Simulated assay, not measured.
Amino acid sequence: MSPTLHLAQRPEADALLSRSPLAALVGMLLDQQVPMEWAFTGPFTIAERLGADDLDAHVIAGYDPEAFAALLAARPAVHRYPGSMAGRVQQLCRYLVEEYDGDAAAVWRDAAGGQELLDRLTALPGFGRQKAQIFLALLGKQFGVRPPGWREAAGPYGEEGSHRSVADITGPESLSRVRAYKQEAKRQAKAAKRAGTAG
């Protein structure tokens, strides 16, 4: 199943995310400390600067690290921290080359169950448990990758009808709802921190 993602909010960038498993993984990797749209536009920008229609794990893994960092740092930068993120993207691609012959979709293609898929995702460089659960939820909700127990393995992000993460964004309305959820979660976390300090 090929989804129609709306994470970059740019048609050409979203088209790449929708057809390229590696682009979706790289976008998820970049989705930290920058706005979501910026992160998920990153794979398209990288492909464009490499002069390619898609991302290739073998090409990125073998790229000169300094040249690749410069590629991500060129304006407009692919990330707020282009140097460190360039290293992480290359690390991810090297792992995919070593473990899956560069085939990103192989990470989830034959996973027998949700927990196995979660384990495979958390093994990816740059993917902590939360990021892995969000990506698992994205696979289940929008890519049709639904091994038994996928919702349970994705934790709260797998809940039907939730608006917690990128997994739930299918257009402008759901984007607004996810933003509102995240802002409220931040507000509650700050309030809890203040209450803890006061105590």
Rank of each mutant, 00 (worst) to 15 (best):
L50N: 07
G114L: 02
L136M: 02
A104C: 07
W38Q: 14
R146L: 13
L7T: 01
V145T: 02
G171A: 01
R49S: 06
Y95F: 14
G196K: 08
I60F: 05
R19C: 11
E98L: 14
E12I: 02
G83I: 01
G149M: 05
W108Y: 10
Y63D: 07
A198T: 12
A52F: 12
L72Y: 00
C93H: 02
A132P: 00
D101A: 12
T170G: 09
A111H: 01
G171S: 09
Y100A: 07
L96P: 01
A70C: 09
G102P: 08
A69P: 09
A77T: 04
G128E: 12
R49N: 07
A106W: 05
K186H: 15
I134F: 00
A192Q: 13
R19D: 09
G113H: 15
A112T: 14
L5R: 09
A106T: 04
P147D: 10
P35V: 03
H163W: 15
P35H: 06
G128R: 12
D110T: 13
R94V: 05
L22I: 06
G158Y: 01
G196N: 10
A180E: 06
G199P: 13
A67L: 15
L124M: 08
P3S: 07
A77H: 05
V59C: 12
G158N: 00
M1Y: 13
A111W: 01
G113W: 14
R75D: 15
L92F: 10
L139C: 02
F127C: 02
Y81D: 12
E98Y: 10
I60H: 04
A123Y: 05
G62S: 10
G113R: 11
Y181H: 13
I169G: 03
L136R: 00
R80V: 09
G199F: 09
